[in-house]
Amino acid sequence: MNGITLILGLVTLAGALASVALRNLVHCALGLMVAFAGLAGLYLSLGAQFVGLVQVLVYIGAVGIVFIFAILLTRGGGSESGSLFSTSWAVGGGIALAVTGVMAAALLQSPSLDRGSVRAAGPTVRQVGESLMADYVIPLEVMALLLTAAAIGAIIVAMPEKGDPGAPPQPPPG
């Protein structure tokens, strides 16, 4: 644990806090992207180069943009009016605090975390690719099927229904 790791961790936590606490939804999405970037830096500092780059590509690049699209499509671009939190916010916050406290206490007391051995360096991209194509080829194919199903499902769910009052007006024929 060095200074850079500490700074990256603080940036990640700050982005996460901003993404759940801010009023403007676009600012929340940008805070989420900051948290993702901090996590990508942490992965790189842990020696997992490929995962760090995938984090940048998939999370910051794709998921963040999808969130911003959804915020703009639901007209959430401005600030939220009224109360920011749900009516049962005290119960929810209490549950979250209790869960965090129990987990933190458990891991601070755990004696099995004193692992001296640190992996020297992660596998190269070539080794990751060979591993994906040899040992993990069936999970990879299942994942391809899942992503296809998810893409088709997302399009069908978000497609405007016929006669829907919320659908955009159809252009006149001819």
Binding site: T12, E80, I95, A96
Partner: peptide, 22 residues
Amino acid sequence: LLSTLLFGIGLAGVLVRRNAIL
């Protein structure tokens, strides 16, 4: 510990925020 705090922030957000996107 960092991951626990991140999880706790996310859990609080799930339980507390009103907007479905959040």
